[in-house]
C-alpha cells in the first residue's frame, strides 16, 4: 500500500532523507518517531508529491508518486498537524467540497453519516468551521478519508495539541480505519500514542530510518529507552 525504495531528499546540499526503505501493508499503522528535523514530515511530503525526491521512489497503492501525481492522490487522505478547513463553510460543506474534489458523490444524509462516524457531535455538523476546536477539525479530516474511501492515510503529527480525550478518540478512529484495511503512516512525537495505536513503529534520526519493529514486541518503557538511545 505504502512503499519507499531508496528514497532520498536533499535540501540546500543537506541530505534530509537518506535511502529510506519502507513498506506498510493494508491494515497496518506505521508510526514514525523522531526529533524535529529527523525527516518525518519530508517523508510524508514525498508520499504526497508535495516535494520531489532526489533519488528513489515512493509508491502509493503500487503507483509511483512522481509518475502518477494525481492518480495516487485518489487513494490517499492526508491530515496535517493543524488541519485547516474553510472557516466560512460548515463541517458538512467542507466535507462535501473535499469529497467532491476527490470525485466522490454523496447525498447530504450520507455525508452527515460520515461526520457522525468520525465522531463529530451532531450539533456541530451544520456550524461553521470557525467555531470548531482542533480535535473537531481532525474529525472532519477523518470523515474526508472515510468518504473518499482512501486506501492510505498520511498523518503528520495529528494528535499534537489535542487534549487527552480528543487524542484517545482520534486513536480509536485510526484503529477502526486500519481494521477496514487502510494503511496508515503517522509521523508523531507521541511515544505513548505510537505504542497504543501503531502496529509498527519506526525511529528516524537525521534522515535515516534507524530502527523499525512491531509495536506488540515492546512495552512503553522499552520504547522510551530505545527512542532516547537512538536520538542521543
Amino acid at each position: 500500500m505504502i512503499e519507499a525504495i531508496d528514497l532520498s531528499k536533499i535540501f540546500d546540499g543537506k541530505t534530509v532523507l537518506n535511502n529510506l526503505n519502507l513498506k506498510i501493508e493494508k491494515g497496518q499503522i506505521f508510526c514514525l518517531l523522531g526529533a524535529n528535523g529527523a525527516g518525518k514530515t519530508t517523508t510524508i511530503n514525498l508520499f504526497l508529491g508535495f516535494i520531489k525526491a532526489d533519488s528513489g521512489n515512493a509508491f502509493i497503492n503500487q503507483l509511483d508518486v512522481s509518475k502518477h501525481p494525481l492518480e495516487t492522490k485518489k487513494h490517499l487522505a492526508y491530515i496535517p498537524e493543524n488541519l485547516m478547513l474553510y472557516p466560512y463553510l460548515t463541517g458538512l460543506e467542507n466535507l462535501e467540497y473535499f469529497t467532491g474534489l476527490a470525485r466522490k458523490k454523496y447525498s447530504q444524509n450520507e455525508l452527515h453519516e460520515f461526520l457522525l462516524e468520525s465522531g463529530l457531535q451532531e450539533s456541530y455538523i451544520n456550524k461553521r468551521i470557525s467555531t470548531y476546536s482542533k480535535g473537531m477539525r481532525q474529525k472532519v479530516g477523518i470523515a474526508v478519508a472515510l468518504a473518499k474511501d482512501a486506501k492510505v492515510l498520511l498523518l503528520d503529527e495529528p494528535t499534537s495539541g489535542l487534549d487527552p480525550k480528543s487524542g484517545n478518540e482520534f486513536a480509536e478512529l485510526l484503529i477502526k480505519l486500519s481494521h477496514q484495511g487502510i494503511a496508515v503512516l503517522m509521523a508523531t512525537h507521541d511515544l505513548f500514542r505510537a505504542k497504543e495505536t501503531g502496529t509498527h513503529i519506526g525511529i528516524m534520526k537525521e534522515g535515516y530510518l534507524v530502527d523499525t519493529f512491531p509495536s506488540e514486541n515492546i512495552n512503553h518503557s522499552e520504547l522510551e529507552s530505545l527512542y532516547i538511545n537512538h536520538i542521543k
Binding site: T72, N82, L83, M84, Y86
Partner: peptide, 14 residues
C-alpha cells in the same frame, strides 16, 4: 496562508 492549499493538493486537484 490558512493552510487549506496543502489539503486541496492532497485531493489531486491540478
Amino acid at each position: 496562508e490558512q493552510g487549506t492549499y496543502r489539503l486541496l493538493r492532497s485531493q489531486g486537484v491540478s
